[in-house]
């Protein structure tokens, strides 16, 4: 699998590198793409829904296993009228995160379309596909089971499947940690990471959010030991 970043995106010098990876968030309107990014970036959650207009951009530096990577997060609008823009952003994305709402079957059904769009743009090989079932805290309203999600991820060739709760702060940092470890930057030392990440989300109920988050401004250190993510809820 040729997922090596382009020369313009990665610069190597004396062992330490800073690579930039473009991650695009896809999914139907209201599934929680923006809140997933907000939880990852600022560890906050806003109950008030506000639709994204066009495409939003945020970047974050991650420090993991003595390597620094910069994630560029492209948050797309789920509204129909902005759909035409999205392929242009998938075009040069390294990672595509397709988000669905576990309480809305329709949003789950549309995953196929999103994955198809990604494959059309990036091909089968050149992108890391992630499927994320959000709103995991709303168990009473669940319409899509974890097994269904896993099955779909397997069927569509997604390397990472995970259920998250942006409201409860569950599994969010773990998701990004797994994404980071799936990147070519970490492939040499973490060859088994893909197999691990395709496992059941319920079993990977861990969190990389540690108290070390604040040790370096603008950098998330996710090299700390995993812990229960629910405990980090700041809602």
């Amino acid at each position: 699998m040729s997922t090596a970043p382009s020369a313009s995106q990665q610069t190597k010098k004396s062992g330490k590198t800073l690579s930039k990876y473009k991650i695009v968030f896809l999914g139907e309107q209201g599934v929680g793409k923006t809140s997933l990014i907000t939880r990852f970036m600022y560890d906050t959650f806003d109950d008030h829904y506000q639709a994204t207009i066009g495409i939003d951009f945020l970047s974050k530096t991650m420090y993991l296993d003595d390597k620094t990577i910069r994630l560029q997060l492209w948050d797309t609008a789920g509204q129909e009228r902005f759909r035409s823009l999205i392929p242009s952003y998938i075009r040069d994305s390294r990672v595509a995160i397709v988000v669905y709402d576990i309480t809305k079957k329709k949003s789950f059904d549309f995953i196929d379309k999103w994955i198809e769009d990604v494959k059309n743009e990036r091909g089968e090989e050149n992108v890391i596909l992630c499927i994320v079932g959000n709103k995991n805290d709303l168990t009473d309203e669940r319409q899509v089971t974890i097994e269904e999600g896993q099955e779909k991820a397997k069927k569509l060739g997604a390397k990472i499947f995970m259920e998250t709760s942006t409201k409860a702060g569950y599994n969010v940092k773990n998701l990004f940690k797994k994404i980071a470890k799936s990147l070519p930057e970490f492939q040499d030392s973490n060859s088994n990471i893909i197999n691990e990440t395709t496992g059941a989300a319920s079993k990977t109920n861990n969190n990389a959010a540690g108290s070390n988050d604040t040790s370096k401004a603008g950098v998330i250190d996710i090299s700390t030991a995993d812990q229960q993510e629910q405990s980090t809820c700041q809602c």
Binding site: F57, L85, R91
Partner: peptide, 16 residues
């Protein structure tokens, strides 16, 4: 699509 790609690439460059 051409214009969309063009403007998206500018958007990306501006963000960087």
């Amino acid at each position: 699509r051409y214009i969309s790609d063009l403007l998206a690439s500018i958007h990306s460059l501006i963000a960087n």
